[in-house]
Design a protein around this nucleic acid. Sequence first.
DNA 1: ATGAAAGCGCTAACAT
DNA 2: ATGTTAGCGCTTTCAT
Lengths: 354, 354
Amino acid sequence: MKHESPGNEVTIREVGKRAGVSPATVGRVIGGYGKVSEPTRQRVLEAIRQLDYHPNTIAQSMKGKQRKSVGMIVSDICNPFFGMIARAVDDTLIKYGYNLVICNTDDGIDKEASYLKTLTEKRVDGVLACTACEVERKIPRPVRKFYLETPTVFIDREAEGIDVPVIQADNFGGAYEAVVHLIQLGHERIAIVAGGSMVSSIHQRLQGYMKALQDFGLQFRDDLVKLGRLLGVESGAYAARELLNMPAAERPTAIVGLNNLMTTGVLLAIREAGMTIPDDISVIGWDDFDLAQVLSPPLTVVTQPTYSIGSIAAEHLIALLERQRSYRQANDRKIILKTELVIRESCTSPKAPK
Amino acid sequence: MKHESPGNEVTIREVGKRAGVSPATVGRVIGGYGKVSEPTRQRVLEAIRQLDYHPNTIAQSMKGKQRKSVGMIVSDICNPFFGMIARAVDDTLIKYGYNLVICNTDDGIDKEASYLKTLTEKRVDGVLACTACEVERKIPRPVRKFYLETPTVFIDREAEGIDVPVIQADNFGGAYEAVVHLIQLGHERIAIVAGGSMVSSIHQRLQGYMKALQDFGLQFRDDLVKLGRLLGVESGAYAARELLNMPAAERPTAIVGLNNLMTTGVLLAIREAGMTIPDDISVIGWDDFDLAQVLSPPLTVVTQPTYSIGSIAAEHLIALLERQRSYRQANDRKIILKTELVIRESCTSPKAPK
DNA sequence: ATGAAAGCGCTAACAT
DNA sequence: ATGTTAGCGCTTTCAT
């Protein structure tokens, strides 16, 4: 375990000694500032090579420099949606030399608060957050304070009264379109299965759902809206089972899953119940995935440009960090990207309409 | 943008002033070392609260302390396998107060080398790596050097001549079992679709495949082993198409996909070709996933204890970091976890056995 | 063009 | 029990 035994680290000073120059000069060549003559420069570079010197960014940070790292708050990196976001973010950040610190909150606001605390202590330059803050729930003081004081870009979700830029999909529109699609097919009892907590994106989707019902004169029934206790496949299956166990006359003829985990759960429950899609029940998922085309039948889904959401958010944060004024303007505080309804074969008209 | 404007940071010194004590005393209370009287301690705590002081871990690191952060090398965090590993790792690390820095290499050794460089510069305490190093390929000097000098635990893959602990599944055994299953069903032309590069875990699976063929007196045909160019669904589909386009007498009667992306690609290609599973062709996947049960037919897969691999690796690294000695012993340098063949309905006996 | 020296915020002897 | 002081490795004036 020779790594980092205090004291044996190669420093700027030793490089200087080796190259026959002062530490300051070495600093200039590695930092690329000030003036260094070409021959000196080469000698220093050679010494760096020989000693296998690596600048200590920790020490650099001490002199007011950036840490070149940003934190990312997600519910769960296992979830392909967040995986894709994280990937997009990392791809973008690395172009600017930043590293990504991942924090899984499971949508728990306390876990989020705790991660935020360690991120502050680590003095990350900024954060990208799929916050666990819920609609109409009070936000812990330290959480609000953190987001207000630290360069932050929200992803997918926003939080009331925390005015930072947010990049998200058109959740309202996407849900509206999906529900209208079902209504036009003749469905009148359309259920929604959402998981976890009442985060802003889910809230928006629910609003889109309700607006569609309303626009088409359909009665809203709150027993058709299932909010799983947690965000997970099993939770989605549980909710779907409740729906499927209703008496035939009340039972929904269509279900829309508000995220991929919930949708998987719905699919599981339908198979369990021995029902077939779309003959017995129509299904729409949220977020596309490769296997969707391979399911029998191929699944109709609402797609959002997940990768773009991540990369735009990251670019936005970088702009904030490099202090570009233009990004503090009101008109790009909120970027909403279009969703798309990809119609495959999991929806038809209900057997006995009405 | 008031965050971190140099100079306005609340320091130990201001806290001291506020509490009427020296900076050193403040350090003692936040660090929990040395002796502080209870009243003083309370005054300091109060000052910390009032000023909303947060210790600067960057500065702490300067005094030889740990950074409390570890890097993690993966191919692609989007891949559910790596997502799950990352999740397990983060869950474990956070218990010990460490944070996780994610690095996506796309299995490119140069990208890996470049991330390793920034991780050294950031002086992470250690790293967990699904290395991109391939079997029988030379490893860049800096990469080998890094792994040898930095506390490292390999995950899923190892690298020749880099003697660090590794946690992995029984790739050989898992593949052997899957292939024997197929052979016993009567298959004689069994294809393998692997993606990306010849990383040690894939190599081991291939060995298991070959051993099974050999043990049962089946001829190895290298046109039945497809190594996709990249690791991705499309690459898997491409490979599978080549297999399916073979003349019927040569065409494989079974395909095993060596990871979830490849398997998805195989499924896609089979559907495209209008073939049905398992009547026209049997399929086994690697790595289980929730939707596997919902496919028609439900997919037979080789499962590995992914979460455990991640958490064991993380625990191992922590032990290396905090307890050093005991974990440097030979007998736990390599931990191999059992796989399991989950038999569902995607395999039957081939229609016209020879 | 290069060097000397003063910190950045904190820890850890060493004093008192 | 608490204060003083000297760095950690680097950047950055200010001299030379």
